[in-house]
Amino acid sequence: MKATVIVFPGSNCDRDVAVSLEQATGRPPEMLWHGSSEVPSTDLIVLPGGFSYGDYLRCGAMAAHSPVMRDVVDKAKSGTRVLGICNGFQILTESGLLPGVLMQNMSLKYVCRDVHVRVERTDTDFTRQYGNGGVLRIPVAHHEGNYNADEETLDRLEDEGRVAFRYCTPDGELDRDANPNGSARNIAGIYNEDGTVLGLMPHPERLADPQLGGTDGKALFSSLAEALQ
């Protein structure tokens, strides 16, 4: 699998995700500056976490119109896999590749801690190595992770099996207290219609090596490496 990480001014998880990708695929991803007008041929595009453009106007709003994003959108529409983590998820909603919006956390506080999420599907290129699903312990670090969309869109996401991850208790129960940001229906991540674009708020790259205190995020990268080899 050849992976490409887009680097925006203010990205700060680009190198972490590059390490995770290299561990999964055996080769370093291409790091591509946002000012490029084209993404060279690739199997996976990653929009990393961070604070692109200082979160000016709205998180992800400026980055969604970066020169490189036109080709990212084109490639996503023709089936190239796209993974957006945290700020990358915000960029995906702002660019229209995923529906809905990530609003300020209900608590008005920046939340930086481990949470639990339930893997809702294990038949996608992103999650095939999560076995029977289950619950992951995984860090979140965001101020705008409160996913929302109109009821019709939320129902459609549910009906089409496009909810990727939901915040839950360690036992996998959907509970309001287990939701760190107030997101609708405890949604932590969603897919596009074809299951080829994934946006999620938690950071799998921050728990993908035993030295980081856990490996629950690792299978996401090895799933992609296996699916796109």
């Binding site: 106007l57 709205r58 709003a61 119109h65 909603t93 702002e94 529906p99 809905g100 919006v101 609003m103 929302n148 969309a149 109109d150």
Partner: peptide, 9 residues
């Protein structure tokens, strides 16, 4: 429509 507002919300 394009940038200043997110018309979803």
């Amino acid at each position: 429509e394009k940038l200043l507002a997110n018309t979803v919300i």
